[in-house]
Design a protein around this nucleic acid. Structure first.
Lengths: 235, 235
DNA sequence: GTATGTTTCAAACAGCTGTTTAAGCCATGA
DNA sequence: TCATGGCTTAAACAGCTGTTTGAAACATAC
């Protein structure tokens, strides 16, 4: 078994997003922008339908409720992104099938590449989606969170496995912590969640994905591979 | 001039928080918890006053409006924290006045120490405040942001200066980026903004500040001091 | 005692919220 | 031609929103 196979099928034929009518798409697009800008609670259906140029009742007709709309807005973007990540992980496992362990930088890039591709693709929401994701993170939408952990929980497991192999000198607990910290940096860097900007004093507020990657990847890799309590760092 | 003096006075006699009446404090406490849990938009004044056990009109009497209440909730916690950070920076500059440069870990700890102290002090809101802060970060409250940059903008400048001295081999741009990334990790780690938890698959959701520091500080220091484009890392 | 200024209270204000209803439109297929 | 089913529409629903009002309760000072 030297050819790694995806352990979950969503990389190939997983839960696909439903096909939406033109009206539904207009609603989704308008809602996406407003949710990002104002948040779920502060965005009214009247604002959405007005901006989308559709009737108010269309939301409850095409989607069941405001909550369901929000879930649809999120999952429409999240599905393709998750699939891209899984493809990257598959490719990574295939690449390092013969090698004893993957390189940390490769694991990092398997997350970064889909994020960059997403940020640069306006058709998939562009940088908007990551900001929407951080809304989901801070506001806590119970139902959406359940959907996520049910359908995509294994994604994290696979990243953990890959990172654990790349950092063989670390305990399981330490790998978990570093993964947590590393993904936090990557996620919030892409989302533009910069505390310094709250003070109006951040010069790096530029949202250029390539620039983000250039500075972020070395930072994260250094953090992930730093020596552990006196032990030497992994290669 | 070997004895560093604070460049801004707020460490000693800066903008102090107003003294609040008992009713006002009850409102602030209730609002704080609800803002953290539900967000500003989803928290109604009736919910706040009900939980505080005061009359509805008390909010508009003691604070001018809901917006002003939110600002008061935030600034009540932020003021003491900012002052603690400035004291740490003063102490750091005094400590390294003779040395050519500060150690990166010391700069990191000058931010971490007040954060830990805050997290452990229920009288000052405990871990609640950092979560409230991340609400401010994601929702963008224009007026509050202006207040922050006006009153506390220099705080970031001083951290940047300290970090720049600790990393003499790096360009100004690179220092800015690393500060941005480093503070992002620290902030979001304390706030508990863990993307992995969205997938229900995070083992490190524990909010113990000491445990956070134990794993986070080495990670951040490694990221900050990592070699720059072929150059060796600073000492 | 009265007068003064501060704080509380119940009630009402106009406006917005998500959702539902029933009538109408319009293309499809028989 | 008529009927069917998908979709849109304006209107109304009950309920909640932040804020204001004027009267009542309160403590303090004279």
């Amino acid at each position: 078994m030297n050819q790694a196979k995806p352990s979950i099928p969503i990389g190939q034929d997983g839960p696909a997003e439903p096909k939406y009518s033109e009206t539904a798409v207009r609603i989704l697009d308008a809602a996406e922008g407003l949710f990002v800008e104002l948040g779920m609670a502060a965005t009214s259906l009247r604002l959405i339908t007005q901006q989308a140029g559709v009737n108010l009742a269309a939301v409850n007709y095409h989607f069941r409720s405001k909550d369901a709309l929000f879930e649809a807005v999120f999952l429409r973007r999240f599905g393709p992104w998750a699939r891209a990540c899984l493809e990257e992980l598959d490719a990574l496992e295939r690449r390092v099938a013969g090698q004893p362990q993957a390189l940390t930088a490769e694991v990092v890039m398997s997350y970064v590449r889909p994020a960059v591709a997403l940020s640069k693709d306006p058709a998939r929401g562009g940088a908007m989606f990551v900001r929407l994701f951080s809304r989901v993170l801070v506001e806590n939408h119970r139902q959406l969170r359940e959907t996520m952990s049910r359908q995509y929980g294994d994604l994290v497991t696979r990243y953990a496995r890959a990172l654990g192999r790349a950092l063989p000198g670390l305990s399981e607990e330490e790998v978990e912590w570093r993964m947590h910290l590393g993904f936090s940096v990557m996620f919030h860097a892409f989302a533009g969640n910069d505390i310094l900007k709250v003070f109006g004093r951040s010069a790096v507020s530029a949202r250029d994905p390539d620039l983000i990657v250039k500075h972020m990847v070395p930072f994260v890799v250094a953090g992930l591979t730093s020596p552990s309590a006196g032990r030497p760092p992994g290669p």
